[in-house]
């Protein structure tokens, strides 16, 4: 098995290396990838959407339809994990890793986490809201928000966090995020424009078309952030307790 695998890998490698000779030079400004559609994005993004961060504007405006279905993929993955693993009855204990014997909590860890988690969450909100002007956006902010809940449930207990952040609300919020995204697009449809053409919001809010694009992107990224946050936490809760939601890592 192993010599065969090595042979196969090496033959694929030879083919790929031969193909790499035809690629354009690394970091060549005139390469085909940077000379067809991306110059348009770089030149027109600030004029059309008033967002300096090109990655944000391409993600949430020019390629908005793509990003919407990426969000749906994340939503589906979370639901799939829930369907595969979630059990309502308690399975037999089969922990392989050594677990602490004592029952009392680790006070140093908990007080440090109590200091750090609010800072993380405020920073995540900053990343979402300031994603137009600096690196950041819905995906990053959502992941940091989810990681803050994961940190909380590692330091305390999964049950303690789930008492405040119930499974029902996890499921509800994950759908709400996708609905915010699609809803912003559909309202544009009702206002007489194409799906996800944020310019339609301009008359409704009384602002210029460029500002409408910027605001629409902010709304879309909030939707993405809600879905990503909730799905990240739900993945952790299901995988680390093997579907029982009783005891985390």
């Amino acid at each position: 098995m192993k010599p065969l695998a090595l042979l196969f890998t090496l033959s694929v490698g030879v083919l790929l290396l031969a193909a790499s000779l035809d690629l354009p030079d690394w970091s060549d400004p005139a390469s085909p990838a940077s000379s067809h559609v991306s110059p348009y994005y770089i030149q027109e993004s600030l004029n059309q959407t008033s967002v300096p961060n090109l990655v944000s504007s391409v993600l949430a405006d020019y390629r908005s339809y793509d990003t919407m279905f990426e969000t749906v993929v994340i939503f589906c993955a979370g639901i799939t994990v829930l369907t595969i693993l979630r059990r309502t009855f308690r399975s037999k204990d089969k922990y392989i890793l050594p677990r602490p014997e004592r029952e009392d909590a680790d006070i140093i860890l908990q007080s440090a986490v109590r200091l750090l988690v609010p800072v993380m969450q405020v920073f995540a909100l900053y990343v979402i809201a300031h994603g137009h002007h600096s690196p950041g956006g819905g995906f990053q902010g959502g992941v940091i928000l989810g990681a803050s809940f994961i940190l909380l449930s590692i330091a305390y207990d999964l049950k303690t966090v789930l008492k405040r952040f119930k499974e029902n609300s996890i499921l509800f919020l994950s759908a709400v995020g996708v609905l915010i995204y699609a809803g912003i697009g559909i309202i544009c449809l009702f206002l007489g424009r194409n799906f996800l053409a944020y310019g339609a919001w301009a008359k409704l809010l009384g602002i210029t078309e460029q500002e409408a694009h910027s605001h629409g992107m902010l709304g879309v990224e909030i939707g993405v952030a809600i879905t990503v946050m909730v799905i990240m936490f739900s993945l952790y809760a299901d995988l680390s307790s093997s579907g029982d939601l009783d005891e985390g890592l």
Binding site: P98, P100, E101, R102, D106, I108, L109, A112, V113, L115, L116, V119
Partner: peptide
Amino acid sequence: LYIFIASPTATHAIMDAGFESG
């Protein structure tokens, strides 16, 4: 400030886990 709080705490958690598992 963040590193000053987080890094010693992480070290403490790893050490504590090592102590608990003997």
